[in-house]
Nucleic acid binder design. Structure first.
Lengths: 189, 189
DNA sequence: GTCTATATTTTGATAGAC
DNA sequence: GTCTATCAAAATATAGAC
């Protein structure tokens, strides 16, 4: 489709601005200025501000869902599945850190797609929880509180967008390995 | 001071609304409606919307700074200090979860106090990092990547506001113990 | 301490020329 | 595809009556 490139450019620029100030505090005039055009011109490429937010968030949420489906379908044991989840988060976040910020912080400003997003997120967390519980049952994992373990891993993985852009020097694979070590084995000697 | 109670009531109500939609998306009319009065009436108690945000964030940030000073001043070893940091976060978050949401998500909308806040946060992270590095040096901790360990612990502790309100049934002490176990010892068997 | 009324600015979005 | 001009709604905040 003609002009689809320009639309993607607008969406990426918007994601960066949303990361810095949040969806509500970014005006169409801010976005236009960052693109070097006037606000009215944006509407030749996008339908509305809300449309931009939807484009950023939904595709990312679906990418996580697809990744989790693939992990569920594998024959890996629980530990391997958890490692793959870490890899999934590092992979997606390193490709679109600004989008991840919007996903994490501005999902509540979705309108028509809010319920759909909440369903995707809830299902993702359920799958994650199931893997942890399975690992405890098979003695692959300590008998920790599963909810606390889930919360801790998810909090860390969801915050990666804050941290990954600053660490371009570190290899993605090295970071993934370090994260797996800290999240699975802890830091205590 | 007369009416100081009403001011605190407004600040607490605002913190709750900020948690749900973010500072920028909450209007003075929203806040007034939640208080059961008209927007103009709010200005008899507070100077501006910005003034409310400042009141929420700065006092919390200073509470963290004071807590960290106390931990630094103690004679505890590194592990004990890390445990005390976990306790500090659970303590503060359980007392003011909505305020913690604003602290985490709306600090960038501070105006006059932004630089002061950033200094407090940066110093806090430096102190935290020093404790981890000391623990590695003394062999109390694994030789993990200190930055990754700091990032993981901070991400989890900063996300507590999302999770604590849902778990009122769990004893605060039990949660603290579970968190320490997961963060320090990991989940791997 | 709360109200009504209002000033001023800013917002998302549209119409139509080029 | 971008512009100027503009609209209608919504925002923060103030003034002054009660």
């Amino acid at each position: 489709m003609k002009g689809e490139n320009r639309k993607q450019e607008i969406i990426q620029t918007a994601a960066k601005l949303f990361t810095e100030k949040g969806y509500s505090a970014v005006t169409m005039r801010d976005l236009a200025k960052a693109m070097g055009i006037k606000a009215a011109s944006l509407y030749n490429h996008i339908n509305s501000k809300q449309d931009i937010l939807k484009s950023i968030i939904i595709s990312l949420a679906e990418t996580f869902t697809n990744g989790m489906e693939s992990i569920k379908a594998s024959n890996d044991n629980s530990i391997e599945k958890l490692k793959k989840i870490v890899t999934l988060h590092v992979e997606i976040t390193s490709q679109n850190a600004y989008g991840m910020a919007s996903l994490n912080n501005d999902w509540m400003h979705l309108e028509e797609q809010l319920d759909y997003y909440l369903k995707l997120r809830s299902d993702y967390e359920d799958d994650f929880r199931l893997i942890i519980n399975r690992g405890i049952k098979t003695n692959e994992l300590h008998n920790v509180n599963a909810e606390v373990a889930l919360f801790s891993m998810l909090s860390t993985l969801r915050s990666l967008y804050l941290w990954l852009p600053k660490k371009e020097d570190i290899q993605k694979e090295q970071l993934t390995a370090n994260l797996i070590e800290v999240l699975l084995d802890g830091i205590n000697n």
